[in-house]
Write a protein that binds this DNA or RNA. Structure first.
Lengths: 231, 231
DNA sequence: TCATCGTATAATCATTTGATTAAAAATGAA
DNA sequence: TTCATTTTTAATCAAATGATTATACGATGA
């Protein structure tokens, strides 16, 4: 009755093992759910939609994840893990600290490039960003998962690097807000992609030169931080 | 059977007249709908929720707006109008053009301050921003209303001013993307307000000094535009 | 006072939805 | 193969939902 790989906590082992075989039912449900929850939101996505997209059965959702909410949380955990993978925050050691301004800037540039490219090009990242945005704007229980396991780490890391660039303390509100603003620039590139495409007279996907320009814009803002006078 | 104020196009006159008496049923439905659609999304909001919040009846939704979708579109039109009011884009004449860099910067600062304060403090603006964000990320028919009637005008105006500051053409992709990035910074201040509050060790509302800092951050990015070397 | 018309309400309807169930199918060990 | 266990499936259920309808209410004018 209980699936073999359900542990004592009621958690689903497979939920944290994205490397399972492609045809695993639980994995297929999570993939389909990620796509659909991101696109239509939690309530906008029906269990039947998920089951059909996953080429599976409604009953399997209950079998592997207890219920729709369980699947949603499993997906949040999976996304948190994948985000850390993609952004290189999943190693045991924390990302290396930068000691001087040039090093910090170089690391920031690297992070920005990686995030912009992921959001612009990797279909996977695009899939889950909307789910993440929804949670940030309108937190459910999944927000805590995403915040604690990923968002805070990225945010703190950005803040530390920016503190070095600005020659300020990473505890200052100003520095934290600068980090937040940098994230906002990147995120809005994806969240507001439809209006941006229209404004550029384009349709469909962002062409590579636009992605390059977005990178340049964000990076130029990073460099400007070095010249911000202390107030 | 048909409400008196329904015109030939099937549009609802009251939908574009936010100044009607407070106790007008149609107006109450729109207010409640704005709040609820913004918070729970289109599917996440039920007609019963709206009717109850508006202290009205389910049947009235059909009576005034045909159906749930009609109410949603009426709300989108109303929001578009209110956004233009709030940001001063509702005059017959387009906003004044800036001829030199200092004038353009001053105008940009004004716009940024107005938007940040609205998003931070006006409950109304906060209410509809989430609805707008959802539409941008996941466009329905209401997206066209919001885009054409408001977003594009604001975007174009920002782009023109930024073009002056950067001494470039407002048609350049670089300039359009800079404008988009500025909007992203402001919008993410509200969309990502929960994670930002957590990072700042705060809860509830943004205190005034945080709002001030956000303004300073965005404005410093505006000023940095003047020093961006042409590429 | 009554009649009319615009508005509001409660009851009802057909679908949809998440969840459950019992049976079938697949899997694997003896 | 046999048999027990795990997994998948289709059918079913109760609750919720958008829409509709018939009726009641209330203001206005004859």
């Amino acid at each position: 009755m209980q699936p073999r790989h359900r542990n004592a906590l009621g958690e689903i082992a497979v939920a944290n093992e994205p490397d399972r075989a492609e045809d695993e039912t639980a994995h297929k449900l999570m993939l389909a759910g990620m796509e659909l929850f991101g696109q239509y939101g939690f309530k906008g996505t029906t269990t039947r939609m998920i089951a059909e997209a996953a080429d599976s059965n409604i009953g399997s959702i209950a079998y592997y994840f207890d219920n729709k909410t369980g699947l949603y949380h499993a997906i949040a955990r999976h996304i948190a893990q994948r985000m850390r993978d993609v952004f290189g925050f999943n190693d045991e050691r924390p990302p290396t600290e930068a000691s001087d301004r040039d090093q910090a800037l170089a690391q920031l540039e690297l992070i920005v490039r990686r995030m912009v490219r992921q959001f612009a090009q990797a279909p996977e990242a695009r899939r889950w960003l909307m789910l993440v945005i929804r949670e940030q704007a309108n937190p459910s229980e999944a927000f805590d998962i995403l915040y604690e396991e990923t968002f805070e780490r990225v945010h703190v890391h950005l803040t530390r690097l920016i503190a070095v660039v600005m020659d300020r303390s990473p505890d200052e509100h100003r520095v934290i807000i600068e980090a937040h603003t940098i994230m906002g620039q990147i995120v809005f590139f994806l969240v507001g992609r439809f209006p941006l495409l229209r404004r550029l007279g384009l349709e469909g996907e962002f062409p590579p030169e636009v992605v390059d320009t977005v990178e340049q814009v964000v990076i130029s803002h990073l460099h400007a931080l070095a010249f911000t006078t202390k107030g």
